[in-house]
């Protein structure tokens, strides 16, 4: 395949993947609106009651993580499970479309949705809650938040590889909401009992949130390499588990549709 054609396939696959989820109100509205509504409530209305800007700044980082987590899990996890169920994936596998283009498209769609959420959150934080950060912090925070697409998409891939169709949405919700809470995306982690804090240490969203908080000097003080190491290790583990799931599902899906 020529590089030009490969590029075109990647680009169009991503374009149509994005257009597809954009036109899906069941996906687009919650993933875009939830982080913003949460921020409006906890960051703007509740958070700006005192003089301190600590709360609006803190939750800007954590709802940013929440905003990136949603599209990655729903778009990737539930979307993939659905397309395996309907057979779209099977059909595309018979075409010359490289498998990479399909994964790339899903990551890109999650990235673009994440970027929209991040931009909207930033604007709301800056203009409704009075948050001011240094220029490098705005850029670094956006960069760290969007980089979260990678581990979260890997987690989505794992869910998509093991769960089927409708049950995938349920599984994603079972992962999404508890992980968001236990990772301190809604309330700072140090407000939880010890046991829950220990659980957080195992969660990718916790480590990602800590990296985001590091940018604005509000993290819990663990070193950056620790967070990075956990995220890299978990991403690799997710990919491995996903690969197992696909191998197992191969024969399973054929038996069902034979």
């Amino acid at each position: 395949m020529t590089p030009g054609r490969r590029f075109r396939i990647y680009l169009l696959e991503a374009r149509f993947q994005f257009v597809e989820v954009l036109r899906e109100p069941m996906f687009a509205i919650p993933t875009l609106a939830f982080p913003l509504i949460f921020y409006l409530f906890f960051g703007v209305i509740m958070g700006t009651r005192g003089v301190s800007l600590a709360v609006p700044t803190y939750v800007l980082a954590t709802y940013g993580v929440f905003g990136v987590l949603g599209p990655a899990l729903f778009g990737f996890g539930a979307g993939l499970a659905n397309e395996r169920d309907t057979g779209v994936l099977l059909l595309k596998q018979t075409t010359p479309m490289p498998a990479g283009a399909y994964l790339f498209a899903k990551v890109m769609a999650a990235l673009i949705f994440g970027a929209v959420v991040v931009a909207a959150l930033f604007l709301m934080a800056a203009h409704a809650a009075g948050v001011a950060l240094y220029r490098w912090q705005w850029f670094a925070l956006a960069g760290v938040l969007l980089a979260g697409v990678i581990p979260f998409c890997a987690l989505g891939l794992t869910i998509g590889a093991w769960a089927r169709g409708r049950s995938a949405v349920a599984v994603v919700n079972l992962v999404f909401l508890p992980m968001a809470m236990l990772s301190g995306l809604w309330l700072p982690i140090y407000m939880f009992p010890d046991v829950m804090q220990d659980i957080a240490l195992a969660l990718p969203a916790y480590h990602h949130a800590q990296l985001a908080l590091k940018v604005i000097a509000m993290d819990a003080g663990q070193p950056v390499p620790t967070h990075l190491a956990v995220l890299v290790a978990e991403t690799l583990a997710f990919l491995a588990v996903a690969a197992l799931g696909f191998r197992r599902a191969d024969s399973f899906s054929m038996r069902r549709s034979r």
Partner: peptide, 28 residues
Amino acid sequence: RGAMLQISGISANLTVREHVELFRAYYP
């Protein structure tokens, strides 16, 4: 090679032309 499989459907949110254009892009 081309194939028409017994599958329950492709993305409901894309138009006919968009589906066709996407698949055309796969081929030289």
